[in-house]
Design a protein around this nucleic acid. Structure first.
Lengths: 200, 200
DNA sequence: TTATAGACAAACTAGTTGGTCTGTGCTATT
DNA sequence: AATAGCACAGACCAACTAGTTTGTCTATAA
């Protein structure tokens, strides 16, 4: 409840509730009324903070989804000397941090990508830009590994980085379909086999 | 226009139009009215052939999406002695058979999976069963390759088959986001590197 | 203390959408 | 040739949903 009249907090409550609803039902399936019910707010409050459902969706993407992935998948890569081992560890650690319920609902980034990319150019541009950011971050780590003699010189780091992301997102997608966390780790084991071919 | 009163043809026209709309907008985004406009039919006709939007969706999945993937991705595997080479060829051939527009809209199976799996149990069961069918078909080919001494004995054929599908669907997903067919083939190249590790 | 703008409530609106209902002409069987 | 049922047409409806409008209360600055 906190103090009455706390606009920053209200905005965050809306953002979090909207994220949960989007995660459950997709952006199009997310209902404004569901967000209001969850936050005990009324229409006036929500449309005071966000001009439209679309703007709310963009804010959820930028302020929640992007930030979470940066914290969980991108920043930790720096903690490992060998980027190959780093990525394996991040993959496993991320998988362990979520419960089955989360896996059943899928990766929020993946969900939003597949749903909104073909029908909303604003979402598409943000999503594509973020995937490029992620890909370049991994590619940089791989280049560093190459310079340190840990990774084969002849690989195309950008293409490899893209494939690593693709396989990771695919693992989430399959786990979502099977409603089973194990499918994620099963894909991870095969991804690790691929990753080992990159070692010098 | 064909002859008046051709119920089988009418049913197929509805099915095809619904498939196109689902492919463009997702199942939830597919509008009954859009299907009617596309087929020049009225509500009465559609609801004569299908009891509900959901039933229409199930029929599209079973009679169009499943069949297409079986023809394009599963049956051709039998034409190759070495299943590894077979899968590489199928991946490329499938990619070449579609134009950019198709890639922008994504793999219909992948789309439907990610959209409907968490919110419709009927879809989920059908989709999961089909992925299992596909996985087992690939696993069988891999086993055959093992027996012929083409593929390493120690690999887990089921897990490998799952990863092959995952990577393929992931490649479609990335190409859809980038709106670019090349991303698909880029992922294919790295998948091929993985596949080669399976050779005896 | 008072004016002003921000933060929210609550009722209302207009458009959309899946589905229903009744009717009608065609077609095949007896 | 009569009749029954199939294959549709087309009007209608009820529920839903994003967004609007008007108004009220509160905090802050002058």
């Amino acid at each position: 409840m906190a103090t009455l009249r706390n606009p920053e907090n209200t905005r965050l409550r809306i953002l979090n509730a909207a994220f949960e609803e989007i995660h459950k039902h997709g952006f199009q399936g997310m209902r404004i009324d569901a967000v209001l019910k969850k936050t005990n707010l009324k229409k006036g409050a929500l449309y005071h903070h966000f001009p439209s459902k679309q703007a709310l969706g963009y804010a959820v993407f930028e302020e929640i989804i992007e930030k979470t992935i940066i914290e969980l998948w991108i920043n930790p890569l720096k903690n490992y000397d060998n980027p190959i081992e780093g990525f394996k560890a991040v993959f496993i650690e991320a998988g362990q941090s979520w419960d089955d319920e989360f896996f059943k609902q899928g990766c929020p980034l993946n969900n939003l990508s597949q749903e909104m990319t073909p029908i909303d150019e604003g979402f598409r541009q943000r999503i594509q830009a973020f995937f490029n950011l992620w890909r370049d971050a991994i590619a940089n780590e791989l280049s560093r590994g190459q310079q340190q003699g840990l990774i084969k010189k002849e690989i195309d780091v950008t293409e490899v980085a893209r494939f690593i992301i693709t396989a990771s997102e695919g693992a989430h997608a399959q786990a979502k379909i099977a409603q089973n966390k194990q499918e994620y780790f099963s894909c991870g084991k095969q991804l690790a086999i691929y990753l080992d071919t990159l070692l010098a």
